[in-house]
Design a protein around this nucleic acid. Structure first.
Length: 299
DNA sequence: CTTACGGCCTGTACGC
DNA sequence: TGCGTACAGGCCGTAA
């Protein structure tokens, strides 16, 4: 298994993590929660372990790039993977096989460095879920379970891109009047939730729109095409994550990243993949971040 | 109000 | 070979 380290956790990766964790967590109690350090990117909530221990995970949800675990205690555990965050699942079954004397088993067992195991959840029934995050850009918060969606940052967050509420009309309205670029606008979680650098680049390429274009200049028709492109790239990536999930479940149980072929991201200098386009992918810098585009077919 | 930017963090890639 | 530096990037606080 080769991990594509360029692949950051955006909506499809977080959804894949959610689908991997849900069968382990939903309906089960957290027997013990150990924070191996007091902070991730931010300090963990006061009395973090005590507030989680003994409570049941009623449901594991996702909003944008956040995981939201609704707890029987009346609180919601909100987790963000940052850039390098992963969850690893150990069950009594794969704990037994992890020591198997096959060449792959040892390599898989070292997919994450235990030094960066920051939070460990012991789950009713013998499972263990570990949050591992070398760069520590991830964070966890607690919010009232009944009102988490009205707490920051969810109160200002744009629509879920895969929901029916997100279409050309909604996107056009969100972009109307914006003087910034399409690239910056789509990265703004208040416009649409869950996109990061990779899928913004991919969606703009699919919609044949330049990341340099002023966001507020988009026609309704083009906003519709862009919304459809966003849905398309996310759905395909989630499908790819689903297949990687099956691989992971049989390997080391590490959830967070998966192999996926991109049309433009990190393909600087390579041929445009659009049918009939003779252009090449170039890398430019916008707002201090890399954008990848084909200047032959994106306007 | 909107937009822009620095800082956070560490593993990896690269140049000398 | 080893050391130093740049880079990756989501989010948040601050500034313009």
């Amino acid at each position: 298994m080769r991990f594509n380290l360029a692949s950051m956790p955006e909506l499809p990766e977080v959804e894949t993590v959610r689908r991997g964790l849900a069968p382990v967590l939903e309906g089960r109690r957290l027997l013990a929660v150990k924070a191996r350090r007091p902070d991730l990117r931010f300090p963990l909530p006061e009395r973090f372990s005590e507030r989680l221990a003994g409570t049941r995970v009623e449901r594991l949800d996702r909003r944008g790039k956040y995981l939201v675990a609704l707890l029987g205690s009346g609180e919601a555990l909100i987790a963000h993977l940052g850039m390098s965050g992963r969850f690893t699942i150990e069950t009594p079954e794969n704990a037994e096989t992890s020591g198997a004397e096959t060449p792959g088993a040892f390599a898989r067992a070292r997919a994450t460095d235990p030094a960066h195991d920051h939070v460990v959840f012991d789950v009713e029934g013998g499972g263990r879920v570990t949050f591992n995050d070398p760069r520590r850009f991830g964070f966890m918060r607690l919010a009232p379970a009944a009102h988490w969606a009205e707490t920051p940052p969810f109160d200002a967050m744009g629509p879920e891109p895969l929901s029916d509420a997100f279409d050309g009309r909604a996107l056009g309205a969100a972009l109307a009047g914006k003087t910034t670029t399409l690239k910056a606008a789509l990265l703004d979680q208040r416009v649409v939730a869950g996109l990061g650098n990779i899928y913004v680049n991919e969606a703009l390429h699919r919609a044949r729109l330049s990341p340099l274009r002023q966001a507020g200049t988009l026609s309704r028709a083009r906003a519709g095409l862009l919304a459809a492109a966003i849905k398309g790239v996310l759905e395909e990536a989630i499908a790819a994550g689903g297949s990687s999930l099956r691989d992971h479940a049989q390997a080391d149980g590490s959830l967070g990243y998966f192999q996926h072929a991109f049309d433009v991201y990190d393909r600087d200098g390579e041929a445009c993949r659009r049918e009939g386009c003779k252009g090449a992918v170039v890398r430019i810098t916008q707002n201090g971040r890399s954008s990848f585009l084909c200047q032959a077919c994106q306007r």
